[in-house]
Every structure is written in C-alpha cells, then in structure tokens.
Design a binder for these strands. Sequence first.
DNA 1: CTGTTAGCGCTTTCAG
DNA 2: CTGAAAGCGCTAACAG
Lengths: 340, 340
Amino acid sequence: MDIDELARRSGVSAATVSRALNGRPEVSAATRARIVALAAELGYSPNASARTLASRRSGLIGLLWDTDYRSGGRQHPFLQEVLIGLKAALSDRGQGLILLPIVPPDDEAGYVRLARQYTLDGIVMMGVDQHTPQVRALLATPVPCVGLDLALDGPRTASVGSDNRSAAATAVAHLHARGHRRIATITGPLDLWPAAERLAGYRAELARRRLRRRPEYEVAGDFFAASGTAGMRRLLDLPTPPTAVFVAGDAMAIAAMRAAADTGRTVPDDVAVVGFDDIDAAAMVHPGLTTIAQDYRRFGTTAARVLAELAAAPSTEPPRSVLLPTRLVVRESSGTDDST
Amino acid sequence: MDIDELARRSGVSAATVSRALNGRPEVSAATRARIVALAAELGYSPNASARTLASRRSGLIGLLWDTDYRSGGRQHPFLQEVLIGLKAALSDRGQGLILLPIVPPDDEAGYVRLARQYTLDGIVMMGVDQHTPQVRALLATPVPCVGLDLALDGPRTASVGSDNRSAAATAVAHLHARGHRRIATITGPLDLWPAAERLAGYRAELARRRLRRRPEYEVAGDFFAASGTAGMRRLLDLPTPPTAVFVAGDAMAIAAMRAAADTGRTVPDDVAVVGFDDIDAAAMVHPGLTTIAQDYRRFGTTAARVLAELAAAPSTEPPRSVLLPTRLVVRESSGTDDST
DNA sequence: CTGTTAGCGCTTTCAG
DNA sequence: CTGAAAGCGCTAACAG
C-alpha cells in the first residue's frame, strides 16, 4: 500500500493524495475527505524516509543526553519525566524523538553530521557540557537546539529550566518563616547554571530578609551524596553553626541529614534541612525531606514548543530562556510551622 | 556533499562508493581505502532516509515504553540504565534508537503502522501490557520484538530479564543463613512475570531449606509503597509473626521498614527485611536496605544483541528468554552475620 | 572488481 | 483545484 495505490483507488493523482494528507489548502474539501477516509480505511501511512527525502524535513527531534556527565547522584533525577513530556508533546505535533549516540570528543563534526544524516528538525540537550568542541560545533549551526537546565548560546538556541533563583529564595523564605535566622547552604558545582542560580537565590533572599550573609555558611558541594555529608559536618563544626541548611540537591540533602544524625543532632529540631529536586527518596527517608519539586514533564513539553518556535523564527534572535515555576513540598525536615 | 560528489572526487562511480562505505567484499582494498579516507576528510556521511528508502532497512530500533503502566512506584526503576545500555550497544552496531509514541487502544494497527512507517529493524518493549490489541497485532508481525521483564509471544519475539526466581531464592537463603526460620514475603502483582517468578523463587527456597510454607506469610502487594506498609502491618499482626520478610520491590520494602518502625519494631532485630531492585533510596534510608540489584544496563545491551539474532533467525523458532544474573547487596536491614 | 541503470515512495514545481 | 514530471540521495541488480 503506497501512495500510488491509494491514488488509483481514490481516482486522483499521487500529488493530490499528498496534498490532501498534508493538509494543503489547494485541495477541495470533498476530495480531501474522500482521500482521508480511504487512507484510514486501508491503513495507509506515508513512508517516513520517502517523505523526508523529498521534503527535506524529517519531523524528527534528536535527544542529546550524556550519561557520563555529572548529575544529581546515581541518576539524572529527571530523564524519565522529561521524556514523558517530550514524547507526548512531540507526538501531538506529529514529530518523533530519536536518541542520539554520544560522539567522541575528537570527532568535532560528529553531532553536526548526525543532524544532517537524519535530517533532524531540532535537538534537545540535557546533561551535556556545552563547551566541548562537538557540542559547540552543533550550536553554531542553524539547527534549532534547546538546552534543559543548560544555558546555550548560538544562532538558533534556547534554554528551558526551572526558575532556580526564585525557588531557592522560596526555600530560604520558608526556613525564615519557621523562625530560622542562621541559614546556611550547600551548593552544587557553580559552573552549572542551576547550581549558580540556586546560590544566587539563596543570597538574594538573605538580603531581602536582612539576614547577614556569612561566607562560612556557603559550602561547596557537587550534587553527590558524599559532598552533602562533608558539607554538613563542616557547618556543624562551626563556632556558630547554622540552625537551618538549604541544600541545593536532594542526594546531598539526604546525606546531610544522615550526617547530622550521626553527630547526635536531631533533624529538624537541632538543624532544619530543605533540599532541591524532590527525588523519590525524599519521601522515603525519615524524617521526610522538605524540598523543591520541579515540573520535569513540563520541561519536555516546553522544549517541544520552543523548538518549533525556534524553527520558525529568524536565526538572528538572541537566545531565549524559559523559566518554569517550581513547588515547595513541605515534609518534616524543616520543622513545624511556628505560627500555628 | 552527496555520494555523487564523493564519487566524482575519488574518480569512481557512486555504486563503488556505496560498496566501499558499506563494507562490501567486492571492492579492492586500495579503492576502498582511498574512498574511506576521502569520505572522512570531506566529512561525508550518507543520508539516512535515502539509504533506508533504497535498502529497505533503517538501522532503527523502536522503543515502546508505556508510562502509564504499573511499575515500581513513582518511576520505572530502570528506564535510565536500560537506555544507556541500549544506546551504547546499538550505536556500536551502527543502529539508532527511536522512541515510539503510545497509540490509543482503539487504534489496533497503530504500532504495526509505526513500524512500517519508520521501516524499523526491531522493537524493544518495556512496561507495556502485551495483551492489548495494539501490542498483540505488532507481536503477530515478523518484526523482531524483545520484551524487557515481559514474557512475549509471537513469530519473532524474545524476552530479556533478570533471573528473578534464583534471585528471590538467594534473598531467602541469605535470611536463612542469618538464622531466620519464619520468613514471609510481600509479592508484586502476580500477573507480571517478574513478580510471579520472585514468588516462585521464594517458595522453592523455603522448600529446599525444609522450611514450612505458610499461606498467611505470602501477602499480596502491587510494587507501590502503600502495599508495603499494609503488608508489613498484616504480617506483624499475625499470631506468629515472621522474623524476616522478603519484599519483592524496594519501594514496598522501604515502606514496610517504616511500618515496622512505626509499630515499635526495630529493623533488623525484630524483623529483618530484604528488598528487590536496589533503587537509589535503598542506600539512603536508615537502616540501609539489603536488596537484589539487577544489571539494567545489561538488559539494554542484551536486548540489542537478541534483536539482531532475531532478525537473522527464521521466524519459526519458538520465543526465547534470556535470564540475566543478579547481585545481592547486603546492607543493614537484614542484620549481621551470625557466623562471625 | 567496477560502472550503468533502475528504482525506493514521496513531495514539489510547473502547467493547465 | 488537479495532473505530469522531475527529482530527493542512495542501493541493488545486471552487465561487463
């Protein structure tokens, strides 16, 4: 069953079938209806390769996702949900998602070649280092690229992520509202956009609340558990330890709670903790971890939309970045509300 | 830069270039070397659509992954790792991975159409219900399909999963070695292959160790946390409660530990717990959860290999199933070794 | 071992 | 509004 067969059976030419099925305005409503009905009846669907070859558009979006990259612990906390959102949004637009293989760093043109090879309509990146030669080469290209949690730069690029800055501020405000005045933070790797923004939000909220900012209250972490343990120990060993800690990632936060417990402190009474990400474990540990939940599914749907906009817009526009709202999930690790 | 251009520059015909680049035996070593070198130099890579159209093979594997399906809690515990393994193994074979959209149940031919549309070389399924009409229609087709943790049936199908039965036996043996004689289990949904196998392994090991099998020691769960809580409560309320519980999934196991603690029991002293899956949280909770780790990455690499074998073999062979080894990860929830 | 010749199944001018 | 014709870039017989 190919387009010629369908054309013959519906008594028109292949060109008309093509037009009808692609929603072109030139076909009369009657012919279109007839063709569409027959196509459905016969189970016809156009061959993707032939269509791509002829039209020079594949309807395929590539996903660039680097496993080896530093992430929030044993796994990207969010690949799963992002994929769900992406898949749904793309298939609504009649597009498909293809997972790109990782190319070696010495193959500078690797991704550019992949994009051409598959005639990709756009690329979504997550967990990659945008400063490597292969990625830079791709970004320099007019192929639409959107970075998730990644600040991208190039002629047709955009970024999608949570509003990490205000999320962090919310976390700090929450602790402040619970009566805390000595609030510390354990950060992520500050060369990563989200980590830097979270620290900025922490500082901004301290300022807004007129709390003193102490350098020794900002300890560097790397999103992995071990750095949460180390960070909490350091904070608790301070002459004037904090009474609350905003930890920029849940894996670190959970490890930090454990570290506090191991040195005889009680969470949240001796030290309150707020995390970031709302990983599964946050609800499973005891006490439950108060944390910031991100809407990862929306990362995906937003990426799909932004990609389409990028394809339509002239490549002269400056890179945009879309910030998504987050949600504070209150559990036990931040104590109970004083005001009740 | 297309094949004709490359052909012109290397002084041969397009056909020869095609042969050289596809590793056909008919080309002389010298010509091949020349062409390959020039291709690399010019950054030529063949257009995937043109190649698919002409050869009727795309090198694309589809991933069928249903989000809505019952899984091990908030997320498939393993999509991430499987994807890593799949991607690596496929790209080693020069194949690609495309994520298939979920088709509505009333579109019986949906997946068959997708497979034809993209000229898929094979399909990997996870988390889908193989009894739905759309999936059954696909399985009836000669397209190679492999199910992960899914017992599939059809002319060109196979299954890949852990050896759940012996893994469960190992868990029970471990508890027995720690001195436990009253060992209960909380199961997964028994219509799922892995859940059924785990129960079978539990029973087999009880028998092997000549332990009495008590019906009231087999309580039904659904892999979700709430059923772990309920299950543990029921077991502890028994006139003769078990001293150890093998829980068929970590989300349930962690909830079960919490339930035990909430009723004043200490884990592992009053009741020992062994889980299954080794989710991230297993190492984060307190006490750490002893559990069975599966090699999910190997699910992916194995699936890629099996798919290739399926494509090569005649479609008359009966469905095969490949069982992968697991690993017992001993933490605190199962107590300490008596023998030391 | 290599070149020539047909397509693969679709879209897209260009005429009408 | 519709049809005819010309490819899209590659592979696969078929000759030589």
